[in-house]
């Protein structure tokens, strides 16, 4: 399998899990022009990010084009411990998607 577009790390401390994720995605706004051809590069960006803890959603994000290229996201949730699973998935405006699961450390 190809390398995942997602890098994710989750760490538990005092019952609070901090999740840090990096997604590799170009997040094209649809406003930029190709310097050589002068044509507008079509928008291509992540619309939706969902994070699950042991199968239950903890965060659902709706993103616009103004999230930076190769998005970084960090958030916290309570009630997690080492060994739990955290899964992050995204979907972009062209219908592509990816997800990755990791264990809380």
């Amino acid at each position: 399998m190809a390398k995942s577009s997602i890098k994710i790390r989750a760490k538990a401390k005092n019952g609070v899990v901090t999740v840090k994720a990096l997604i590799s995605h170009k997040m094209e706004t649809g406003l930029r022009k190709d310097k050589k051809t002068g044509k507008v590069i079509p928008a291509h960006f992540i619309e939706e990010v969902v994070c699950e803890h042991n199968g239950a959603p903890v965060l659902e994000a709706e993103w616009g084009v103004a999230i930076s290229k190769n998005p970084y996201l960090s958030f916290k949730f309570k009630g997690g411990k080492a060994g739990d699973t955290v899964k992050l998935s995204w979907k972009d405006n062209t219908g592509k998607s990816d997800s990755l699961e990791t264990k809380v450390k």
């Binding site: 609070v16 803890h53 903890v58 965060l59 994000a61 709706e62 999230i67 998005p71 970084y72 916290k76």
Partner: peptide, 19 residues
């Protein structure tokens, strides 16, 4: 820019990078 819907257990904390 974005909307983050936090479910029950999430803390009010979001960190990201924007344009």
């Amino acid at each position: 820019i974005a909307k983050f819907n936090l479910k029950g257990k999430s803390e009010a904390f979001i960190s990201t990078r924007i344009k």
